[in-house]
């Protein structure tokens, strides 16, 4: 009955495909359930992901496995200090043709793919990092005055190494804001570690089954992304997302238009230099839509927004030096805001 009503794919299809991709990834990736789910949420919502984790936690493996599961093209760029923008976007080269004719032709860079892994993005210079901006935001790159469209789906996964920070270039806030989620990968626990050791040191390696065939994979994925956009969001849920975003902004900031009656938290005022941008609100709703579909619903609930709140907001809140001095983390502040808003709602 439902499948007749909704466009193809159906809500049930969405959840089924999502879980199947998830399962395929977990054939290779042990643990990190929450991170994998967040990664897929961002993928189906049409966003890009920044993954932060210490070396050896499976960042690169995760991205590679995702590409295999979706049967989409996959490229990897190892960001280094001498990496140039043209190394990412591509450049014009002189090509010789028959008869001695030579002309400039565009040679696409590794960015022309469906899934791009920007490994250790913070090791490249800001100029190179910013080469990703246009591609991430507008699905296009401009080289020598010519704009080249990227083929959807385009999904960037950038990794950050929180150690060895010397000689790195922290991502500017503008670029951070363009990432849908920031996902933290932690060390696996003992059981997970034992499983990792046993599965990766044996004679046979786990094989990932593609969920889509190669020809229809991009279209199927785009159809699923369109379905996500159709999920119904009530004004109440929209207001909740807006209040959540506003609550991350310090009322004392000159950039904040704080109104009496809005949620205000003392710790936010004390420790946050800049709160979430409006993109944070968009992220909350889009992520919540995916969560709703996974739950078999076509409406966004407050719980859906809360589910994605941390991943959506943690990299959009800039803490000040007081927070560093007091060892205050973004997670604590977001949880505090969520609790405060929940109590107001009741």
């Amino acid at each position: 009955m439902k499948s007749e009503i909704v466009d193809t794919p159906s809500v049930a299809d969405f959840a089924r495909i999502f879980r199947r991709v998830q399962n395929e990834i977990h054939k290779v990736i042990v643990g990190h359930e929450r991170a994998v789910e967040d990664l897929l949420i961002a993928l189906f919502a049409g966003g890009h992901v920044l993954i932060e984790g210490v070396p050896g936690t499976g960042k690169t493996m995760l991205v590679k496995t995702l590409g295999q599961a979706l049967n989409l093209s996959f490229n990897r760029i190892q960001f280094t200090v001498d990496l140039m923008p043209a190394d990412i976007t591509g450049t014009r080269i002189v090509e010789s043709f028959d008869g001695g004719r030579r002309e400039f032709t565009f040679s696409p860079g590794p960015i022309f793919t469906h899934i791009l892994l920007a490994d250790e993005i913070n090791r490249a210079t800001p100029k190179t990092q910013s080469a990703l901006l246009e591609a991430m935001a507008e699905l296009q790159v401009t080289v020598a005055g010519t704009t080249h469209r990227l083929k959807p789906p385009f999904f960037v996964m950038a990794t950050l190494n929180p150690v060895e920070m010397e000689g790195t270039y922290p991502l500017p806030e503008a670029q951070l804001d363009r990432f849908f989620f920031k996902i933290h990968l932690q060390y696996p626990d003992e059981n997970e570690l034992a499983t990792i050791i046993s599965t990766t040191t044996g004679a046979s390696e786990p094989k990932v089954e593609p969920v889509f065939n190669a020809e229809e994979a991009p279209a199927r994925l785009e159809a699923l992304k369109r379905l996500v956009r159709q999920v119904i969001v009530s004004p109440d849920a929209q207001r909740y997302a807006a209040r959540l975003v506003s609550a991350t902004q310090p009322s004392t900031s000159k950039f904040t238009r704080w109104r009496p009656g809005s949620f205000r938290d003392e710790l936010i005022d004390r420790y946050v230099a800049f709160g979430s941008s409006p993109r944070g609100g968009q992220t909350l709703i889009l992520g919540a839509k995916v969560v709703a579909l996974l739950d078999g619903r076509v409406n966004v609930a407050h719980e859906d927004i809360e589910r994605v709140a941390f991943s959506a907001l943690n990299h959009r809140m800039m803490l000040n030096y007081a927070a560093q001095a007091d060892a205050v983390e973004t997670r604590q502040l977001i949880e505090r805001v969520l609790k405060g808003l929940a109590s107001q709602r009741e």
Partner: peptide, 25 residues
Amino acid sequence: KGRLATLVAMAPQAARLPLWSFLVE
């Protein structure tokens, strides 16, 4: 999980919502 509130709130705009029927069902 917000189904009823969404249905009541969005009823006036039902015609513009592709997934409205699914929500009602």
